[in-house]
């Protein structure tokens, strides 16, 4: 079996599932896509570890599964259930426009990466495309969405991209520090979901457009 090719295929599926997550408007489906994309990311990290004989990446892949595939999705689903958040998510853009922007992001990344100093240095090169695309897609989701839950998931997709960038460039960090990053991201997601519950309770909606009390 051609493992590098399998890894490239997995990277493609990670990108696709992340795009579907960004373009979906149902909360449970979004969480599901995020969990699938994070799971595939963990498989990809393990695959890279295998190809490059870097056993250090296996526990990181496992931590990825524990935190981003199980723990964080469960936390988000629980917070949404507890606050009675609506299943339907809000966005400034329609699904078709969202896909158009996502395609634009992919083209922009494809062209932009070739001009960056990192082009040609990262092996395999598609990891860089994947990482930067995920960061921009997550960032776009945080801007385009009008509800707190989508913004949390946008942040997490962006973080997935940065994690990918880390494995693509500096290969691996000491496990203690990796764990520190996972814990930091999880605590961040936990706090955001906690606040989203309060937003829902205080405003009766998770629409961020309603957060307008503090203006000058």
């Amino acid at each position: 079996m051609n493992l590098p090719l399998v890894n490239a295929g997995i990277a493609g599926v990670v990108l696709m599932t992340s795009m579907m997550a960004v373009a979906t408007f149902r909360f449970r489906t979004l969480v599901r896509y995020f969990a699938i994309s994070s799971f595939l990311l963990a498989v990809l990290i393990a695959g890279i570890g295998y190809v490059h004989a870097n056993a250090h990446l296996y526990p990181i892949a496992l931590a990825n599964v524990c935190f981003k595939v199980i723990l964080i999705p469960l936390l988000l689903l629980r917070a949404a259930r507890a606050s009675g958040a609506s299943e339907r998510l809000r966005s400034y853009l329609r699904p078709a426009s969202t896909y158009a922007v996502l395609l634009g992001i992919l083209v922009f990344v494809f062209v932009g990466i070739r001009r960056s100093p990192f082009f040609g240095l990262v092996d395999p090169g598609y990891l860089l495309y994947l990482a930067v695309s995920l960061v921009l897609m997550g960032f776009f989701m945080m801007i385009a969405r009008r509800d707190v839950l989508s913004q949390i998931l946008g942040f997490l997709i962006m973080e997935n991209g940065i994690a990918m960038f880390s494995y693509a460039t500096v290969s691996s960090l000491p496990i203690l520090i990796e764990l520190g990053i996972f814990v930091t991201v999880t605590v961040g997601a936990l706090l955001m979901s906690f606040l989203s519950k309060h937003v829902q309770q205080l405003y009766g909606t998770e629409d961020t457009d309603m957060l307008r009390e503090l203006t000058d």
Binding site: F139, V148, F155, G188, L195, V199, L211
Partner: peptide, 19 residues
């Protein structure tokens, strides 16, 4: 309402920036 709004903006903007 004001403090929750402030906290939401704080964590989302600062965490995104720091990320």
């Amino acid at each position: 309402t004001g403090s929750v709004e402030a906290a939401w903006k704080y964590i989302v903007l600062c965490s995104t920036g720091i990320t």
